[in-house]
Nucleic acid binder design. Sequence first.
RNA 1: CGGGGUGUAGCGCAGUUUGGUCAGCGCGCAUGCUUUGGGAGCAUGAGGUCGGCGGUUCGAAUCCGCCCACCCCGACCA
Length: 566
Amino acid sequence: MRQSRLFAPTLKESPADAEIASHKLLVRGGFMRRVASGIYDFLPLGVRVLRKIERIIREEMNREGAQEVMLPILQPRELWEESGRWSLYGEEMMRLKDRAGRDFGLGPTHEEVITALVRDNIKSYRDLPLNLYQIGAKFRDEVRPRFGLLRAREFVMKDAYSFDRDEKGMRDSYHSMYRAYSRIFDRCGVRWMAVEADTGLIGGDVSHEFMVLAAVGEDRIAHCENCGYAANVNLAGYRRESITGKARPLELVYTPGRRTVEEVSSFLEVEPRYLIKCLMYLVEGKPVAVLVPGDREAGEVKLERALGTPEFRLFNDADWECHPQFVRGFVGPVGLDGAEVLADLSLEGAQGMVCGSNREDHHLVGVEVGRDFKPTRYLDLALVRDGDPCPRCDSSLQVAAGIEVGQIFQLGLKYSQSMGCTYTDEKGQERPVFMGCYGIGVTRLMAAIVEQHHDDKGIRWPLEVAPAHVHIIPLNYEKEERRRAAEGIYRELLESGLEVLLDDREESAGVKFADADLYGIPFRLVLGKVFEESGELELQVRTSGERVIMSPQEAKNWIMEALTGV
RNA sequence: CGGGGUGUAGCGCAGUUUGGUCAGCGCGCAUGCUUUGGGAGCAUGAGGUCGGCGGUUCGAAUCCGCCCACCCCGACCA
């Protein structure tokens, strides 16, 4: 590539709408431009990086026996009616009509299309197992696109779907994808972690998310360095310690106007963890009281799993009005009528607690769980915090921020049953196919790589995903001999199979270096004063900042050496 | 969807409070000369329906109304 011809316009200043490093640097470095909120153009350098990432994905998917297909972005309503997701997916799916008024959706994911394809074309156990994947555009009408590629409305995703005869086959497929993902993220040069995850709208039972550790990540993950336990905080467990507050007799106390945990806590001079927070939820139209220690949050994903339905919400103003027996700010589990009571595990046997009394301006103190009231069930409902005890060992959990770059699911029969995807087994019995699905956010991964690999001057691409291997920077390019020398080195490196960018512009050294920093190509060969004197050039390593003077031949060998195995 | 904010040249911004030599600055771009190991200097120049529509006014970037786009916080979502 000759830089004078390369369409990769750089910017001195960050665009006003960018606030995180990957967004700023990908735009400043000429890798991409914004078209609309959450929608981007990819310029030649950006495309080169994307293709590198896609190549890694293809190689590792193919290695596990997956086969690439191409599925349509535009999908008919009927298919989504079959799975029931036409209504369930909601506003997040972009929808449109054709000229005849038929409904279509822009695919946010492809379970329906792939299940229909496989359903119509496999018949026998001999056709299984099967693993199909594709890499292409996906659309999700995010409520609030932000952070550049991290939360876009149109993005590139690799999605794969496995089809097996039974549960064991499905688990094997799942593990094979887990292995493929591990290699993919390793090769992309990111520090990542696989965590137990919720399955959300996709459905299924077992799921892992692959997280790239980064402060700007929108996910929180809890992990244990001792035993390796790791889970998304929205469902991470932690070992409960029994809670025993100050021993005192059960008593009604006057707490005028004290409704919140903070108010009651400071008024009664009792630490929040000795309060029982009683949250009123409306679950499928019925009131349910959810109890957690006063210093804890209830996790709604945990709650959804416990309730077995996504149809619930915290009481709103109208709900309080509809249920006047619940005294807002003073509800408590003791003597609570008309609501099921779900308590967090930590409350089992708790003593010396404070809770609402169901009477205006009064709380109860000296409450003992189990004696003064009995919850319907004890469940894991409270959210984990940094430093909580690991649920599997004695160590403590750490909570860190991460970017979700991939997620894998054991779907089971969810789609095959609703869509009739079956096969005939050896005995002639018709059976539903066990499915799994596996996604990687390719463009999001590109941004995640930048989040982990940059400095204040620009990107520092890991070797295997860099837009090129070597950046040749001849200074004083207007000099004929310099130009010829650079040209010679350029040709030679190209002939060695390297990907090379030659800065053949008559620009000042400062401009060339600044652009090179933004582009972030791993190895840089500078032809300057030293070259004039001794014919040697300077090899600069973008990541380490290392600079070594050597002959062109040595430089070539050095780089070839660094590239072995890539 | 609620709250807050911003739209002025390719990019980053000032000007709007108080309507009238306010169509401005920096970067970038073009041309010339000088520069060339970290975004160099001088000179000349091109480039803008001031987000859009409507209104008030002798006169609107500036005041009023509606709309659109974009950003932030929240809700939502994975």
